[in-house]
Write a protein that binds this DNA or RNA. Structure first.
Lengths: 222, 222
DNA sequence: TCTTCACTCAGTGTATACAAAGACTGCGCG
DNA sequence: CGCGCAGTCTTTGTATACACTGAGTGAAGA
């Protein structure tokens, strides 16, 4: 694996998991020494991150990890709703019904996963990402799939803000199950509607647990 | 201006205007000598182009200008319809009515621009891009605006395929005027519908003037 | 005491040298 | 005559040295 790929993956993970919180300045020499690569591949990694919107180049001060305000979260969810509703419709028309039937069944029984002691809910999120992957494969549109992928990077970072409690996660799992069931039935209208409802609930939950603007207060959530 | 920016702008223009047709291999030393920059900024430019999807890295043979099949054009328009319809809706709700009223009037009178002897129709396309810019500003969603921007790069490249005749351009101008008028009236439903119609007509025209798959035959349209 | 200018220095932007990996070619063997 | 292998060579990947820009700081003058 190339050094630039390693640097990119490491930095991206650090940003997404808030080990590099918004506002962190990523000095080239400092990061290249930390990651054990030279400046050239590190610059390539930073360029990729900047293209994704995870970092931004500040004239004269290097690149910094971009901030996320609640206002931006709203914009993010507005685009997300647009893309995911369309994706749900297309998946309903073009998807493999068995795949989504199976996923729907698993999601309905996701309560078991949430009783798991794992605090990171890895098993649950893995199941959800399998649904995402199934939708990507079903829509048969690489441009749309790519747009969705680009969005999800930001959404994983935002997830840290939602401070999910078991109740919300259980409800979200059922909403996901509803979406998968509609796709399995080939009902595009319902799939789109269920997606709209799910995203609205998610955003409401996120906003209610983050009363005001100051997301930067949560910079070190530990 | 940085050397990497110049290299990026030059390569991007060359690709979009088909001076570097699909399949061209962009060897680093060759291009860096041609553009008068060293390999380092050129690599950065190539990385940006690859992130945009205009080029793709081929293991061991450098980066090549990506091909565009009719199938991909269909996918492109599918995503485009999704994003632009939503953008038209949001612009109807949030846009400045005077701005779009003015644009609508100009577009209605665009027949004059099309009688212009300029074969590149620069004046016409400048007017259309002003409509795009107005929509971007009106939607008030930087993520959606960014997604639209990323799409338009590919669309400019595809434009070369559509071999627009004056009749189609005039019809397109009227369709654009209809969209602008609906936005000016604040009628989101009609704005979205008019966008759907316009994009369907555009795709139909493009497909009818490119009978079969082999877009690569048009590699050197001059 | 405030403002401004110059100096220093940290850090990015660029060039180039070196290393490594993959592709092409030519030869030999079956 | 075809297939396979090895060697060479082109091209990318990485490291590092140098240049240049911009920011911060200190002192001096008003």
């Amino acid at each position: 694996m190339r050094a630039s790929d390693r640097a990119y993956a490491a930095l991206r993970a650090d940003i997404v998991h808030w080990r590099l919180p918004p506002g962190s300045v990523l000095a080239e020499v400092e990061q290249s020494e930390r990651l054990g690569v030279s400046r050239t591949p590190l610059r390539e990694a930073l360029a990729r991150l900047t293209a994704e919107g995870l970092t931004a180049a500040q004239r004269g001060r290097g690149v910094v990890v971009t901030d996320i305000s609640l206002h931006q979260v709203r914009e993010l969810f507005e685009l997300r709703a647009t893309l995911e509703c369309r994706a749900a419709e297309l998946a309903s028309e073009r998807g493999d019904r068995e795949v989504f039937g199976q996923l729907s069944a698993e999601l309905t029984g996701a309560a078991g996963l949430l009783n798991d002691p794992d605090p990171s809910r890895a098993a649950y999120y893995e199941l959800v990402s399998r649904l995402d992957a199934a939708v990507d494969a079903a829509i048969g549109n690489s441009y749309l799939a790519q747009a969705l992928k680009g969005l999800r990077v930001h959404l994983v970072r935002v997830r840290r803000l939602s401070q999910d409690n078991p109740g919300r996660l259980l409800a979200a799992a059922q909403e996901h199950a509803t979406i998968a069931r509609a796709i399995a039935k080939g009902n595009a209208r319902v799939a789109s509607a269920a997606t709209t409802v799910h995203l609205d609930n998610s955003l409401d939950h996120l906003l209610s647990t983050n009363p005001q603007h100051p997301l930067t207060i949560n910079t070190h959530p530990q």
